[in-house]
């Protein structure tokens, strides 16, 4: 089995897409570097969250506020969306027709939106139990970290919609392809950050 040669992180478009593949080399590397910078941002917020664990100031803590079930469902949604995005990338690379690509992308988008909806629902149920950021340092740290991830997912969904519109207008041209490859990286990256969140914040908090 030969591993395909690669020029940038994420799925490589390969020779079949020479022009877009060339453009990707620089674009994707740049985006990758940006992701790393973003990773530092998240890393620091994780660190702050840990330092604020004890700062509940008499307010509600993880046990009163978090629910394992919804954290689990969110995890599944996001993980599956990562997989479906992978399928979309393969459809982009190996198929002529837009249909399958668009179908996978729409599935991914729906999973992403479901994730956001569930997360918002979580936040509101936390708020109803008195879990609002102004209550304590601990809750501030939680609402500094987790919604930032949610915001990233929202932006990714928005980007996905924009790319779907671009597909509708331009078909699968270079711009669309490079965009999809970069969005793929963002998507998988957000899933990686979520691993940190469910492990540290939810599971760590609930045990």
């Amino acid at each position: 089995m030969t591993t395909p040669t690669s020029r940038y992180p994420g799925l490589n478009l390969g020779k079949g897409h020479a022009e877009a593949d060339n453009a990707c080399e620089e674009l994707v590397f740049g985006f990758w570097v940006f992701m790393m910078s973003d990773l530092i941002l998240f890393g620091l917020l994780f660190g702050i969250y840990v330092t604020m664990l004890g700062a509940t100031a008499g307010g509600p803590g993880p046990h009163e506020l978090f629910e394992m079930k919804s954290a689990f469902i969110e995890t599944m949604l996001l993980l599956t969306s990562s997989f479906t995005f992978g399928m979309a990338s393969l459809a982009l690379k190996y198929r002529h027709d837009k249909g399958r690509l668009v179908a996978w992308l729409v599935v991914t988008l729906l999973l992403g939106l479901a994730f956001i909806a569930l997360e918002l629902h979580d936040f509101s149920s936390m708020a109803s139990k008195g879990g609002v950021p102004s209550r304590s340092g601990f809750l501030s740290a939680f609402f500094g970290l987790v919604p930032l991830h949610g915001l990233h997912v929202t932006v990714a969904c928005l980007w996905l919609v924009a790319l779907l519109a671009q597909i509708a207008i331009y078909g699968l041209d270079k711009g669309v392809k490079t965009g999809l490859i970069r969005l793929g990286i963002l998507w998988h990256f957000l899933d990686i950050v979520w691993i940190g969140i469910f492990s540290l914040v939810y599971l760590g908090g609930l045990t």
Binding site: M1, T2, T3, P4, L11, G14, G16, L79, T80, S82, F83, G86, M87, L90, K93, Y94, R95, H96, D97, G99, R100
Partner: peptide
């Protein structure tokens, strides 16, 4: 024709990459 007419080499590559994703998904699930 939905699939691009793929050469044997490309078909190989596709199989490989598909398996990568599936394996990754499985491991991540576990």
């Amino acid at each position: 024709m939905t699939k691009r007419t793929l050469s044997a080499e490309q078909e190989n590559e596709r199989q490989y990459e598909l398996r990568t994703y599936i394996l990754g998904y499985g491991l991540a699930l576990i």
